[in-house]
């Protein structure tokens, strides 16, 4: 801990091409808060780590291509979109994989253990919160309404679910990069499914099926600490608003008190400071939780909304850790 805590930096962990992080960094700069940007993917070639552990705890330094930071002076950590851990040049195959895993547990381990730092969010909390089964189970615990959902690799169960709750949609349990044989990137959009297509292919892996919400609009609730920004999204061309950004309009709305309370309970349970919740607003006005994105994007909102969220995140990064120090 340095004597002059105003000089203590915020560590922004992300890849180079992250314009959302840039927005937050600009806000911190405007507040004269020092920032060190680090991409763990630059380790070991451009990043040098030296962390010591003694009776006094963790200390040492981290050097990037442009900055050096004392590990025990980091006031907060903004965990965004780091690129994958890697090995040094000239190392390939299983050796490279081994090095990358050592980096994950070594550099990543240190980054997750900075003494007194306030994490937005802690990477391990993100990890735990991003699994949909955990989210759906927690939603019930906190009184958030969720559409009936089935996770299965049993085609018969899937068909039965579709008969009982149809129309239903399919959602992947995790969005991973996927490309066709021509190298064209593909993804799964939320669309109604035809139960007749549910064949033995379901047996191959876990699939998530969900009752279609008869919605009047979509809702994105971005939470930063105690602040809650609920945005109503209108104008989606189909079921999936992500497919047609140019037609969307955004309105800040008030979340119902019971929903807001449940969201905060949810955040606390998962140890999150930041979170982005997606809801469907059904025809009766009920908020139906789809999912939580613990590290969800926000800077694509119209400027007045983005500015408020940015300020709230900057508040967390600037002041959030002080009480713990």
């Amino acid at each position: 801990m340095s004597a002059d805590s105003d000089a203590d930096p915020v560590l922004v962990v992300t890849r180079l091409d992250d314009s959302t992080a840039d927005v937050v960094i600009a806000e911190l700069r405007a507040r004269s808060v020092p920032v060190v940007r680090l991409d763990p993917g630059d380790f070991p070639e451009q990043v040098t780590l030296s962390a010591s552990f003694t009776g006094q705890g963790l200390s040492g330094s981290l050097r990037t291509a442009t900055r050096t930071v004392d590990l025990d002076t980091v006031r907060s950590v903004y965990w965004r979109r780091p690129s994958p851990y890697s090995a040094g040049e000239g190392v390939a195959g299983p050796d490279a994989q081994w090095c990358a895993e050592q980096a994950r547990y070594g550099l990543g381990g240190v980054l997750a253990a900075l003494p007194g730092a306030h994490y937005v969010n802690h990477p391990h909390r993100n990890r735990a919160a991003e699994r949909k089964p955990a989210q759906l189970a927690a939603a019930a615990r906190f009184g958030l309404s969720v559409p009936p959902t089935l996770v299965t690799n049993d085609p018969d169960q899937a068909r039965r679910f579709a008969e009982e709750f149809g129309p239903v949609v399919y959602k992947p349990l995790w969005n991973s990069d996927y490309a066709d044989s021509d190298g064209r990137a593909l993804t799964v959009w939320v669309e109604e499914l035809d139960p007749d297509t549910l064949d033995a292919g379901v047996r191959h892996t876990a699939h998530l099926f969900q009752k279609l919400v008869d919605k009047q609009a979509d809702l994105r609730v971005t939470v930063v600490g105690e602040e809650l920004f609920a945005v109503r999204i209108d104008g989606a061309a189909g079921l999936d608003w992500r497919r047609s950004y140019e037609t969307l309009s955004y309105t800040l709305v008030q979340a119902p008190p019971d929903v807001a309370k449940a969201i905060h309970g949810f955040m606390d349970a998962f140890g999150l400071v930041y979170g982005a919740f997606d809801f469907g607003l059904d025809k009766t006005g009920r908020w139906e939780l789809y999912e939580l994105n613990p590290n969800g994007q926000f800077a694509w909102f119209p400027e007045p909304i983005t500015a408020r969220i940015t300020a709230a995140i900057a508040d967390q990064l600037q002041h959030g850790g002080r009480d713990d120090r």
């Binding site: 890849r15 763990p40 993917g41 979109r81 780091p82 690129s83 994958p84 851990y85 994950r104 990543g108 997750a112 990477p123 391990h124 993100n126 990890r127 991003e130 995790w174 969005n175 991973s176 990069d177 993804t187 994105r220 992500r242 950004y245 982005a276 997606d278 999912e291 994105n293 590290n295 969800g296 994007q297 694509w300």
Partner: peptide, 11 residues
């Protein structure tokens, strides 16, 4: 996906 893109190393 503005909100839920999940890729690369999250920890």
């Amino acid at each position: 996906d503005a909100g839920s893109d999940q890729e690369g190393d999250t920890d």
